[in-house]
Nucleic acid binder design. Structure first.
Lengths: 132, 132
DNA sequence: AGATTACTACGAAGGCGTTCGTGAGTCAAG
DNA sequence: CTTGACTCACGAACGCCTTCGTAGTAATCT
């Protein structure tokens, strides 16, 4: 409907579907359903309905050229992750990125390798983000 | 109702109320309402109803000894932040803490001071968290 | 052609979150 | 005692999320 407007924040069920689309690439309803059903039992028509609603919202785009419509996420994974992280940052952490990092680490203890990866990422981010 | 069970994840409106309670300490409905109304117009009874529901869920505890009941958050801010961060980490980032950190930094660019604070926090966390 | 399968569209139900109006009770002042 | 201010309790409304059943249409098979 509004092709250029930002899609709204995905809900829980929508995020699960987007995860499948991001990892599989453009997929039919059946393929998404198979990807979902591994973890959570769901009827085929439930996934179909979700995808239809998500298409209305602009979260996914639909290619109707084949009989089995092909859906693809309209935003890349990183973009959506950024939206969600920013949203939580604002709502629950008062904008404190340090607070969010601490919260994440406390919630799911990170291995030394992962800590090293975070540090590496901080370095890279500090170099790249010289826009002020 | 279930005093020792973990309260569920707070919703958006509930989180706003909790934020007031965390910063003000135990408060009456009127005080919470004044704290909320600064940013978002809301009727007194809306805040009252929210607090009643939150008490049922166990998100807040109510002291009825005064005529104006006094509510307090049943979990500290850090605990709830940890829940929320862990939840997002699992749902949207596949458990990758590095991904979450990158998402947060991309969403709201951090100042060099904040980056330094994050690094300091990582060091401290690495020292303190020596529990396999 | 007729039957079976695969797919989309649609409507409806149930639950939850949010908002607010109304009623009833309590307390203090006139 | 009556009035007015303040408080809690409750129900209702509305919209959104999620789930699923049913119906209709297109392709395929015998």
């Amino acid at each position: 409907m509004r092709p250029n407007a930002d899609p709204p924040r995905p809900t829980d069920a929508e995020l699960e579907i987007l995860t499948v689309l991001w990892s599989r690439g453009p997929s039919t309803v059946r393929e998404v359903h198979e990807g979902i059903a591994r973890r959570k039992p769901a009827q085929y028509t439930t996934v179909l309905k979700l995808l239809q609603i998500m298409a209305e919202k602009g979260l996914v785009q639909r290619d109707e050229r084949q009989r089995a419509h092909v859906y693809r996420a309209s935003r890349p994974r990183e973009w959506t992750q950024q939206q969600l992280a920013g949203d939580l940052l604002r709502r629950a952490f008062g904008g404190s990125a340090a607070g969010l990092v601490l919260g994440a680490l406390s919630a799911r203890p990170a291995s030394p390798e992962e800590l090293a990866e975070i540090r590496r990422m901080l370095d890279e981010y500090e170099k790249g983000g010289e826009k002020c």
